[in-house]
Design a protein around this nucleic acid. Structure first.
Length: 116
RNA sequence: CGAGUAAGCCAUGCGGCAGCGGACGCCGUUUUACGGCGGAUGAGGAAAGUCCGAGCAUCGCAGAGCAGGGUAGCUGCUAACGGCAGCCGAGGGCGACCUCAGGGAAAGUGCAACAGAAAAUUACCGCCGUUUUUCGGCAAGGUUGAAAAGGCGAGGCAAGAGCUCACCGCGAGGCAGGAGACUGCUUUGGCGUGUAAACCCUACCUGAUGCAACACCGUUUGGUUCGGUAUGUCAAUGUCUGCUCGGCAGGCAUACCGUUAUAGGUGGCUUGAGCCAUGUGGCGACACAUGGAUUAGAUAGAUUGCCGCACAAGACAAAACUCGGCUUAUCGGCUUAGUCGCACC
RNA sequence: GGCCCGUUGGUCAAGCGGCUAAGACACCGCCCUUUCACGGCGGAGACAUGAGUUCGAUUCUCGUACGGGUCA
């Protein structure tokens, strides 16, 4: 990943859920919050509902692969958390492309709102 | 050929492009750190459930008894076990074979609803003798129930009864066999049910906590926890396992010093009572000898993304300190050895 | 990763190994009322699941599934 760190602090996760913006499209939900850093921080959440260890790991892999592919779409300087849903497991990684496009659009729209 | 039994093995494979984890080598780089390149390597038979047993670590070590917990045929195997092997007993199957918490109810306490006379030192209806008030003897027959006082047949008797006898079951003694559980023979007693996955008794085992253990390095602020020293004050308390004996420490407040908690990092962290082959011993579990191969060690947590080919199909499922078992989930395929049935020679 | 609990009608729940498994709220029918509510009468509806022990299991034992708590 080019300009991304992995997000591990549970306090940051909570802050992103509470204060961040939100975008959802087939297979996943994304949360984002401005972090004022020269890089992005990226985290994945997979709940127990998705399945056992095998299914959860697979969901994480698919999301990671899709993120790597779509990283250039996203603006820099955000904390991004993606939550897997039950149907994420059965998808191909390019199946998440529309989701990332929507996420990028939502982030841009919110930043415009804040600057005005 | 069909059905069924037991034991064991495999767990989709191959290729292309891009990528991930920890090592290794080379290069860059002032050392650390960091970056680049390279070829190799990288989840399971159950990694799962966490049901047992160990290693390892810390705490307590001054122990003893009780309590609590666990196990339950015998002999062995093992580091150990609640595991495994062989055998004994009981039960199931035509059979190969399979299943069993399989000690004690004659140490004591409890429970056995409903029904029934009665659920444990029984007597309602009965039977017999005497007599028709009764008194005495008896437990065959009856009903209920999951279970009714050893079973069944014959003799015997007033009627009956292990009262007597044969066979069977049970207990006790003796003899023989066996390492033992136990088995066989024989003598003898006439013999009050079930439940211990009810309390309990007997024998054996058992300190507690768990890698988020623990060891080391170390940041910042504060003064929460614990320890030491000093001063003051109080006369009871804390701790070692829940309790008792016993041991150790007096307790509280303040001040100072250390420690701990509150970011993090490194070690622990993978070679192990391990695996494979052959030989020897053993019925076997297993042991010993020789030879060989040993490559996950992450820390938000690595095997992927996209695509092609093959076949009828691709299940259950992801290491987190490590082993030995047990249990549970599982698409299918293969191998070996017995058994039963049918047909043919 | 380790440890510890629980599961009874739609919901909350009681239940010595033995009755038809209490009770409350909710639901349905009837009565009461001009009507609704309150009240009265009646009714339907459950032991998570698979084995074992026992004459008999919601209860005891073991396995499985699901749910919850706890240790940073």
């Amino acid at each position: 990943m080019l300009y991304t760190e992995i997000l591990k602090d549970s306090a940051v996760f909570t802050r992103v859920y509470k204060r961040g913006g939100r975008a959802s499209a087939g297979g996943a939900v994304g949360y984002f919050l401005k972090n004022n850093r020269p890089y992005n921080r990226f985290g994945i959440t997979v709940g127990k509902k998705v399945g056992g260890a095998v299914e959860r790991n697979r969901a994480k892999r698919i999301i990671r692969a899709a993120y790597r592919k779509n990283e250039l779409l996203l603006p820099i300087g955000y904390d991004i958390v993606i939550v897997a849903r039950g149907d994420t497991v059965g998808m191909k990684s390019f199946g998440l492309d529309p989701f990332f496009k929507k996420l990028a659009r939502e982030i841009e729209r919110s930043s415009e709102k804040n600057s005005h």
